[in-house]
């Protein structure tokens, strides 16, 4: 009988812990803070047994900073992990740009579900079925969509969510607009709100408007010298002109909106952007 108080205490503690879990924790990372970062794409390195143990661990102080950046100021034991968006077994790095807090407790999607995808992609990449760059791009872009593509339906029949800032449409799919045309619908996820979401907001029921992006590198061989934006919405140095979702191009010099503009396409100069049918800022 003397065990009952202990059992009741334990039950109460467990119940209290379950009630304290943040079940609205983000399922997808904020692409501004966590665009993903690759350490290596070399199968000869990654596919060696024990590879992940040869990669060093993230300092705890940096993990705590990642929690703070995501607004997580308190957490229960076992509630989260600092996850590598591109997992170590896929060649992901320990850069802060590849780290985010992922919950074990959210349902039906959580860190355990993403682990299944990571294992599958590792198996496919090490088996030569896909390349490591393709695997890294898929999981960094939207791991829920990648799960559907490479594993199967998400648990609970959930439809993959889509982050508004997600560079979901390959640049070759962005239509060339005539001058003065309105928003290119293909490049604008229909279900996505205009503003960036609260990183705490779980959006598993948001319907996906597009299937996972194709990963054929040959798709990038586009006319008009269009260049794909970086995952964080910036443009590469050799094509710095940003085209926004509203079909307006922004120049790196003298445009106050340039820095905050998330590019859906990039061009080397204004003339190329104009030739593709986009207009400048009025």
């Amino acid at each position: 009988m003397k065990f009952w108080p202990l059992l009741l205490t334990l039950a109460g503690a467990l119940g209290g812990a379950a009630g304290a879990y943040n079940l609205q924790a983000p399922i997808l990372p904020d692409p501004r803070m966590t665009p993903g970062d690759s350490l290596t794409t070399d199968p000869a390195v990654i596919c060696v047994p024990g590879y992940t143990k040869s990669v060093r661990n993230v300092p705890q102080a940096l993990k705590e900073q990642i929690y703070r950046e995501y607004g997580i100021t308190s957490r229960e034991s076992g509630e989260y992990e600092i996850d590598h968006l591109i997992s170590l077994e896929l060649g992901g790095s320990n850069s802060a740009r590849n780290l985010w807090p992922e919950s074990f407790q959210t349902q039906p999607l959580n860190a355990h579900v993403k682990d299944v995808l990571e294992n599958k992609l590792h198996e496919l990449a090490c088996g030569g079925k896909i390349t490591f760059p393709a695997a890294q791009q898929a999981i960094a872009q939207n791991w829920e969509e990648a799960y559907v593509k490479y594993v199967g339906p998400l648990p609970g029949g959930v439809t993959p969510a889509r982050m508004p800032a997600q560079p979901s449409i390959p640049v070759t799919h962005v239509p060339s607009l005539p001058r003065g045309a309105s928003v290119p619908q293909v490049a604008t996820p229909a279900a996505a709100p205009a503003a960036l979401p609260d990183p705490h907001q779980k959006t598993p029921t948001t319907p996906a408007s597009e299937p996972p992006a194709p990963e054929d590198p040959s798709d990038n061989g586009d006319a008009n010298e269009k260049v794909a934006p970086n995952p964080d919405g910036s443009c590469p140095a050799d094509a710095p002109v940003k085209v926004s979702r509203s079909g307006i191009y922004h120049l790196p010099q003298g445009d106050t909106n340039y820095r905050q503009t998330r590019a859906v396409a990039c061009y080397a100069d204004a003339q190329d952007a104009q030739n593709a049918g986009y207009r400048g800022v009025k």
Binding site: Q65, S95, A96
Partner: peptide, 21 residues
């Protein structure tokens, strides 16, 4: 003064890149 303040990476051809903080 916080561990993790500076992140460094050295690429090593054919081997595991080395990360330091």
């Amino acid at each position: 003064t916080g561990p993790g303040y500076l992140y460094l990476r050295y690429d090593v051809p054919g081997a595991v890149p080395q990360e330091f903080w």
